[in-house]
Amino acid sequence: MLVVDNISLKAGTFELTNITFTVDQGDYFVILGISGVGKSLLLESIAGLIKINSGNIYLRGKNISEEKIQKRNISIVYQDTDLFPHLTVFENIAYPLRSKREKDIEEKVLKTAELVGVSDKLSRKPDTLSGGEYQRVALARSLAADNDIFLLDEPLSSLDAKSKRELRALLRKLNRSGITIIHVTHDYEEAVSLAGKIGIMEKGNLVHVATPENIFKHPKSEFVAQFIGIKNFLPGKLKSLPQSDLKEFIVNETRLFCLTEADDGDAFLLIQPEEISISNSAESGSARNHFEGEIIDIARAKIGVEVTVDIGCEVVALISAESMNSLGLKIGNRIWTNFKASACRIYN
């Protein structure tokens, strides 16, 4: 659907070099990278806000590299300062609508507002909205435009945890309804939680494009490897348990207990290596997960030692060298891994 073919550009101190990727209809593509690597610049060049120096951008087979911004059918939503401050929420959502019949406009605005959950805010001005409401209205306005692709530039960065969670659910819902999204962020949790495909960006280059699982299991870049915790990144299924606040995460044959608000179904699980303790027998504390397994690798980490244990799936525990010596750990030993249900982070 969208093909970015070898584009390069220079804008001030920022530079993009030979960026190539493809986004299919209905994809949720997340571009992940630290601040200042050119993520926003890439989005703005796709939207036509910044001219590319070389390469081509194709949308539905048509070369749009020289197309005017207003003819591209691509919306962009920023972190904040998106909404027109002099217009009400209704007027903001109605802005892209050009129908001559006021009734058509009203119908479309009401429908869109309902979809994103701002029906009761239509007469408000943007400066009276909370961060979450503000971003919902920005999304509603893009929806009303009926554009082919949504470009989201760190749309959740300035939100509190609750609003972030709600907005993520909304973005997933929009994506499931068929909307193609390209989303840039520096937050790997956000990326894992939303992406169907992730592109890792470093110093103006897109260095790795793959599924979240591949990105974190087989990191091709320092940047990805920097994220502590990506070692225990497991795909599986989440299932509610009757009469319990816990849920069950099934990976291969192994069933882990999780304390999460995530929805049942396909999901990813992340456990920080330092959240996993190792013992010679099952611990009797508050931890709900105790698995016996075989040590398959022991490697010195930047701090401490990483012990990889096969418990039906591979998990990595970070322990001190002193603990390793006192437990007498060796490759091939059978030991117990223990971690709390609340240490399991689930991303749908």
């Binding site: 059918n73 962009i76 027109f84 892209p96 435009a145």
Partner: peptide, 19 residues
């Protein structure tokens, strides 16, 4: 940025100026 966003929403430069 607001003017650019308005353009991405399909408005012509003249409409962006006046609205």
């Amino acid at each position: 940025r607001l003017e650019k966003i308005a353009l991405t929403l399909g408005a012509s430069p003249l409409r962006v100026f006046f609205t």
